[in-house]
Design a protein around this nucleic acid. Structure first.
Lengths: 260, 260
DNA sequence: TGACAGATGAACGTTTATGATTGTATGCTC
DNA sequence: GAGCATACAATCATAAACGTTCATCTGTCA
């Protein structure tokens, strides 16, 4: 992967997130390349679902009719999360059945997985997944049921576990609020922890945990599982640095998602 | 500010949501484009159901953005459906647990029930219910899980029935595509029929069927249950007329919702 | 050195956005 | 009810943006 276009696309992405929207002509001028190149860059970013392509330019994604609280959270480490999502999506294969729990990072994961255009089944308790999958004809979406929590736009609890008990996925992609060697994976909501645990227990393949550096070493309220039930941690460069100082199970692979 | 159409339309939309209403001439001045362009922008937004077009401008729309074909169906008999929804909601009592299946009529029912501000639990397979319940702190929403169908914005099938098998409601409010003495209640989708049947079977109290006159006497593809499992039909005046000609079980009460 | 992939730009025809023009409908004033 | 102003719809012309194809350049690898 060559560096010059990648870094320009990264800069474009930052600019779009900053300004909300950009024009092709302005970008072409700013980066001293032809408009055609900019258009290709934007198309590339749009295909990954990172921006919304429009006539004359591109805008930041704003396709959710109802914006959940966690979209504010999503703006905390947007690039890290996008990079992590991109990375973990690269492990997804045609025909996979995936457990993906709720949260801002895993929301990005769903976006990245749908952008792959592979024939996969996504099982999730994140209701917002419907916005991401609605245009895809080849991704099958199974929603867990249960009591709806408006703050996280998700369902969880014993009723969710009931459905999960019927499905065995071959990969799980799990977002957490805390990742710690001693406390394992932790979340602030009891029911979410239960649902996530059920997902991990019904996964026959690899369990990926996605977490930006601000989650590493953190302990939240409720324990999901301990680290020896996790196969891989996908994190950013800073997160990987922190993990290196920790005593983690040997079986746990650390995967670094380098910023785009 | 970049003046690409998408960005301008977004700004117009936020402005409308902020102010409640806008005029074409003011917008034209503000964005330095012709009024004609503004009109086209507003038409565009109105077509997506995001704003309400008026003479000389546009106003905010509190309605949620729903699927076009869903919306089309919803606009078929809007007054009748609203009246029916209002009527059936009047039977809902504090503390009730309600089964409500998916469909444009029952969507209105959920809206009416939430407006009651009574402490009830709604169990539904209509995902759009989240828009209606999100602001209510006293309505508890339980979503059935299962495979998501984008056309109806609902989940259904055996996984949904699994959750339903765990819940016994004391009232069920059921929308149908066909209501017929011989064929019973019918719907065009097999899985929906299964889910609806499960709801009715797990209701210990009254089962209400809501149907505007265009559904009465109609037979759709898949049977849900026969009429003797229904306690009441809530319909409009024209529907009541038609039912009078039919041979229906004596136990089935006909409730007429008079147009407001 | 030669083959090759990826990035870039030019040229072409096509699509989209915009504004001017004209005529029609709506609402208001008198 | 006549006259008038405003908003609208319909049509056309123009310019900008777009997609497609081809050619060029660069760096990599054998």
């Amino acid at each position: 992967m060559s560096n010059i276009p990648a870094s320009r696309q990264h800069d474009i992405l930052t600019l779009i997130r900053q300004e909300g929207s950009v024009t092709v002509s302005l970008l072409a001028e700013q980066f001293s390349v032809s408009e055609l190149t900019i258009r290709r860059d934007l198309d590339h970013l749009a295909k990954k679902g990172l921006v919304e392509r429009t006539h004359g330019g591109a805008t930041a994604r704003r396709n959710l009719p109802v914006e959940p609280d966690y979209l504010q959270k999503a703006s905390e480490y947007p690039q890290e999360k996008a990079a992590i999502a991109e990375k973990v999506a690269s492990f997804v294969e045609e025909g996979d059945t995936l457990y993906i729990n709720s949260g801002s990072t895993t929301f990005e994961v769903i976006r990245a997985v749908v952008a792959l255009e592979k024939r996969v089944t996504i099982v999730t308790n994140n209701i917002d997944a419907i916005y991401l999958c609605k245009e895809s004809e080849i991704v099958r979406l199974i929603l867990a049921g249960g009591i709806y929590r408006n703050r996280s736009h998700s369902v969880s609890g014993s009723l969710s576990s009931l459905i999960i008990s019927q499905i065995h996925a071959n990969k799980a992609i799990i977002g957490v609020d805390g990742f710690s060697p001693s406390a394992g994976l932790t979340t602030p909501i009891l029911e979410e922890a239960e649902t996530t645990r059920a997902m991990i227990e019904h996964t026959v393949g690899n369990v990926f945990v996605v977490a930006a550096s601000n989650k590493i070493g953190v302990v939240s309220n409720f324990k999901t599982v301990s680290l020896d039930q996790v196969d891989a941690l996908v994190t950013d460069e800073k997160g990987a640095e922190i993990v290196k100082q920790m005593e983690i199970p040997e079986s746990l692979e650390i995967i670094v998602a380098t910023n785009i």
